[in-house]
Design a protein around this nucleic acid. Structure first.
Lengths: 201, 201
DNA sequence: GCCCATTTGTCGGATATCCACAATAGCCCT
DNA sequence: AGGGCTATTGTGGATATCCGACAAATGGGC
């Protein structure tokens, strides 16, 4: 099983070393990068962990990298580190979904706490995404007709009504309905509703 | 129908006047207060609108008022205004759920846009809360036994199994089930599941 | 005593579930 | 072209479940 890493992206070697030492001494695995580009080269969506991101860097800035990650719909929690941040920058980053925005020099213990929080969040998100992907996969296995029937079942309609709506026999509806239940791994319409309600959004 | 107001809380009369003029000229209703205490005296939970809150005030500070509103679980969106804010303060406010954190001097158009966003959010929250309260009310009307039966129904169990679990007759379960459906205003178990899935959390 | 919650019962119709058997159409692969 | 597979649709019948109306007994609280 892959351990969740803290990804450190900072062009200042002294900072990288200090952060690496800090987290490794607390038993948290670390990977360091000296630029946003270097991180992007290794990063694969789906990896979970926590990104510690310096804002001011030569080349791609931390904010640019953040936007890029949002584009690929990464759910990686991001904590910004900055030496010369201002209020509008912090507000903008947080409103865009950053987990935190910390000024250097930072308090070691607080930072570690935030990172551990973020790692927990990331693991939780990953789990949730795995569930969602699982559901999505099962939904994709449904045929178009089965999907239609399922939607009507979830609308609380009776098989007879569904048959009318689709212009087919009740018996056919029953077959589709049974297939939907089988493919989705449930035994009743209520279970199906519960399953989808938790993961549709 | 009550119009959504912008509530301005600032101890600087010049700011209050400027903001009042700004919003009234854009057709947004305004109520001004010269202190957090004055606002709290008039404020009733459930009112929707948007709070424009100065941080530095004599007496109760804006942050104190914000915390107080959170305690009474107010869903009023809050936009902080500040002349001398720093990054940690902004970060803290946003992480606690403030909608925005704006430094003076502010851009009129941007502020108005944010406020209009906030008013929309507030209206949406209010609607959602009304729905939730409605559901909560119906749930409260259920007897203990009906609630038990409902939970088992939502677990996808058959009446026969529910009867076994509760040590009562199937017929009795049917009666409770019918009462639950009637009180919750639904006709099928699936509708019940849909209803609760959207408002339970 | 009255109201309500809880429990139980019967009867019958409407619905849903399950199974066996069967047919048509479209697809991929050989 | 032929064979296999899936999706789709159909029939008939047996069984289980759900639902509504009518009825009634018990116990608690006002």
């Amino acid at each position: 099983m892959s351990v969740d890493h803290v990804f450190i992206v900072d062009d200042d070697e002294a900072i990288r070393d200090a952060l690496s030492w800090l987290f490794q001494s607390r038993g948290v695995a670390v990977k360091s990068y000296d630029s946003a580009e270097a991180f992007l080269k290794e990063w694969r969506p789906g990896q979970s962990g926590c990104l510690l991101l310096d804002i001011r860097m030569s080349g791609m800035s931390g904010l640019d990298l953040f936007d890029r990650l949002r584009d690929v719909s990464s759910s990686l929690p991001v904590i910004f580190l900055t030496g010369h941040g201002d209020v509008p920058m912090a507000v903008s980053a947080l409103k865009k979904g950053a987990m935190d925005f910390v000024e250097k020099p930072f308090n070691d213990n607080e930072l570690v706490d935030r990172v551990i929080e973020a790692l927990a969040l990331s693991a939780q998100r990953r789990e949730r995404e795995a569930d969602t992907a699982d559901i999505a996969g099962r939904l994709a296995a449904l045929t178009a007709r089965e999907r239609q029937v399922m939607d009507l079942v979830l609308a609380g309609k009776l098989n007879k009504v569904i048959a009318d709506d689709l212009g087919i026999t009740m018996r056919t509806v029953e077959v589709h309905r049974a297939h939907v239940f089988e493919k989705m791994g449930v035994k009743t319409a209520v279970e199906l509703a519960q399953l989808l309600s938790n993961y549709r959004l």
